[in-house]
Design a protein around this nucleic acid. Structure first.
Length: 461
RNA sequence: UGCCCUGUAGCUCAGUGGUAGAGCAGGUGACUGUUAAUCACUUGGUCGUUGGUUCGAAUCCAACCGGGGCAGCCA
């Protein structure tokens, strides 16, 4: 067969009947009659299946009995108006070839499976409707992120994945080494001698591209990074993964207000883009995952996010009359239960909380005039909690050095970062957005492991 | 890391002290258009592992292993 296959996404949308088309895909289900059978074919190009009618007239009819759910097939035939109800088009097969058989123990049956079971077959689950939809949307969302930034004057920077910074203030790191773990070189004091390691020092997988992003924002103006990020915390929750993707824009000549504006317009724009381009995939989530998802996405796109200062948020939590597992007190971190109350019950919308206490935030955040708070902000969304964390960065050399001393961060190790304040320092700001958390929010999927192709979590790879 | 739940057929699950069951999938047959097709018949199990209690354990106990939920840490 020298024909090129036509994707089902194209055939489904066809304006007219078509002769001699080649359709290749995987069988979702088969329905038998005496002299013919129906195949429901999916090729991954869209969530919809194409119904194929195979009649006894075609050669090989008897041998095609072994076509089952999961089999891969090649069908050559005509696209015609369907005689049955439920679909506009169907393919009438002239030739059918079984490419790959699928024995009876094919794990993906034509029924609902638990998400837990699907995680155990992560190599096959993209063939299931829900996961096909998740990963097509994931692709569109990635593209939307690039479009948003590219069309708004940002440059894409590839920050390094291997780094030497061991305390960027964002959790535990995975070590990168070529040292023989059974017989490591040791220095005189008996400790492992990392000067003999590959990079002549300790190195790690990145937990954030922010610091490198700042170097490029203070030269190219507006940049974003979008890449894999690694955290070695043993977090066992539905919204943490050891390897995930993070979007980190960094903007020169920018204060916290503009930073919050950017985060909000970004979340709104990419959400609208997915709404506009992934309608049929989204319908699966509206129907089977979260009945109120569509309403919530429209709401996010159309209405402004609420903005409250940390201090106001504490007052709201005090005034709620709720009993908290963790006490609400100015100066303490907002706990999950507090964030959920703000976004899910009090405001019932995304909320941007800003101006956090200085003591609970990292060294690089800009100290406000009150000396007690920093210009930090978090965007909280219903169902997930924190989706964006950002800040205006401390651009004043003396204040930054003082903060570093306070946080016990060696000036020597970060001399290049401090240089950005020594030479032509400018106010700048940025944020980090968890890509998978945004994808969870948009699809309504409740577990981060179900929106990552092959999820890595503590104790499981 | 802490607390809690869970493990029975390829999948979803019932069986809570007397020796293993259903639906779907698979197989065989029926049906001229089905839509998770339907109908009839049918194959299929070291009940997570190891040890213990008992005349007898899927069921009770212990340890271990796997899975999940919530919390902390964060994106």
């Amino acid at each position: 067969m020298s024909h090129k296959r036509t994707e089902i996404s194209i055939l489904i949308e066809s304006e007219s009947e078509r002769e001699n088309v080649l359709i290749q895909g995987w069988v979702r289900t088969r329905r038998d009659s005496k002299d013919f059978f129906f195949l429901e074919l999916n090729d991954g190009s869209c969530i919809k299946n194409l119904q194929v009618v195979v009649t006894r007239e075609i050669s090989e009819f008897e041998t095609l009995k072994s076509i089952r759910t999961g089999s891969s097939v090649s069908v050559f035939g005509n696209l015609v108006a369907s005689k049955g109800k439920g679909q506009k088009w169907e393919a009438r097969a002239k030739e059918v070839e079984l490419l790959g058989d699928s024995p009876e123990n094919y794990p993906l049956q034509k029924k609902r499976h638990s998400l837990e079971f699907m995680r155990e077959i992560s190599h096959l689950r993209p063939r299931a409707n829900m996961f096909g939809a998740v990963f097509r949307i994931r692709s569109r969302l990635s593209f939307a992120i690039h479009r948003y930034f590219q069309e708004n004057g940002f440059f894409y920077v590839n920050s390094p994945i291997i780094t030497a910074s061991d305390c960027e203030g964002a959790g535990d790191l995975f070590k990168v080494t070529t040292i023989d773990l059974h017989e490591p070189p040791r220095s005189e004091d008996g400790l492992i001698d990392f000067s003999q390691d590959f990079f002549s020092q300790k190195t790690y997988l990145t937990v954030s591209g922010q610091l490198e992003g700042e170097a490029f924002a203070t030269s190219l103006g507006k940049i974003y990074t979008f890449g894999p990020t690694f955290r070695a915390e043993k977090s066992n929750t539905s919204r943490h993964a050891s390897e995930f993707w993070m979007v980190e824009p960094e903007i020169a000549f920018c204060d916290l207000q503009q930073d919050m504006d950017c985060a909000e317009s970004f979340v709104k724009w990419v959400t609208r883009e997915v709404l506009d381009t992934c309608q049929s995939d989204l319908e699966l989530f509206y129907n089977f995952v979260d009945k109120r998802l569509e309403e919530r996405l429209r709401f996010v796109v159309e209405l402004p996010f609420h903005r409250v200062s940390y201090t106001e948020a504490i007052e709201i939590l005090h005034a709620s009359g709720k009993k908290w597992e963790y006490p609400v007190a100015w100066g303490a971190n907002l706990q999950s239960e507090h964030e959920r109350y703000l976004t899910e019950e009090h405001f019932k919308s995304p909320v941007t909380v800003y101006d956090y206490p200085k003591e609970i935030k990292p060294f690089y955040m800009r100290t406000n005039d009150d000396e007690k708070t920093v210009a930090a902000m978090d965007v909280l969304v219903p169902g997930i909690g924190e989706i964006v964390g950002g800040s205006q960065r401390e651009e004043r050399l003396d204040v930054l050095l003082e903060n570093m001393k306070h946080h016990c961060i060696s000036e020597e190790d970060y001399s290049w970062y401090v240089d950005l304040r020594r030479f032509g320092s400018v106010p700048h700001a940025g944020f980090g957005l968890g890509f998978e958390r945004l994808l969870m929010f948009i699809t309504g999927m409740g577990n981060i492991r179900d929106v990552i192709p092959f999820a890595r979590t503590p104790g499981r790879i």
